[in-house]
Design a protein around this nucleic acid. Structure first.
Lengths: 139, 139
DNA sequence: AGTCTAAATAGTATTGATTCCTACTTAGTT
DNA sequence: AACTAAGTAGGAATCAATACTATTTAGACT
């Protein structure tokens, strides 16, 4: 149905960055990294290709609480942890829970494309530095 | 710890709107509705109070795929359905699954504040109108 | 290996929800 | 009644993301 997109060096490089990173990266960070090799790469190109790659299911995206979009290479469904302090995102490595598709069945005319379970809170490193700060304050 | 905020007619009116609506409302829509009674109400005031009410756990918010924030009166934890077409949000009325807190236990230094499960797809009314459109096209 | 064209890009302008800023108003305490 | 810290109105600023436009290029077809 959807035609295979034409090759582009830029898109390839963007995908390569995401393949070789096990974290979640923002578009401007991808842009920054690639500028070292492709000095003329435009940020708009990064955004356009990320959107295209996502619609091709080669990558996936998740937003933190500040609405900033983070990208990762496509992986089997999993959950995310979003830090409210630093805005960072981490994958949670425990079995996915496939609960929703059956539960939604009463709403038979809905079309479900994605089930996302996201935990919001304070990540390990922010939590530790918060504790240290509290100790300091108590003096 | 946190001091009780001073009374404000505006904040009260915002909370009242949300109490009397079982859906999910955007800030500008709340602003629009209240302007009829409070013609001088500022949109910034609406946003500021919504943020405050949320931190007091009196309301909760959820973003659709276009990053638009929707607000509802605080209810027991439940899941949401976000429509990719119209951007609308609906509550899913089936038991919440409390899976995550135990699964996250290996990450003992994390602080978990919220577990959000959100389904993304096409809602009933958008799905129906899509089907009608396809029938029309086939002529 | 040259021509053609739709897709992709670079660079910049624009958008739009949300937040910031500042002078003014007001709840509620003394 | 005066005081003051919290709240407000109105408009400016922010900033991630998208739109726009002239230029470049993948890759198909002679």
């Amino acid at each position: 149905m959807t035609k295979k997109p034409r090759y582009s060096r830029q898109r390839d490089a963007i995908l390569e960055i995401l393949k070789n990173d096990d974290g979640h990266i923002e578009a401007p960070e991808i842009h920054r990294r690639l500028r070292k090799i492709h000095p003329k790469l435009s940020l708009a190109t990064v955004y356009r290709n990320l959107a295209q790659l996502e619609s091709l299911k080669k990558i996936s995206s998740i937003k933190n609480d500040s609405n900033i979009n983070f990208f990762e290479i496509y992986r089997e469904p999993h959950h995310h942890f979003v830090c409210e302090k630093c805005g960072g995102i981490q994958n949670l490595t425990y079995p996915t829970i496939n609960i929703c598709t059956s539960c939604i069945s009463p709403h038979s005319n809905f079309k479900i494309n994605k089930v996302a379970t996201t935990l919001h809170g304070v990540c390990e490193s922010c939590n530790v530095s918060q504790k240290l700060l509290n100790i300091t304050k108590s003096f």
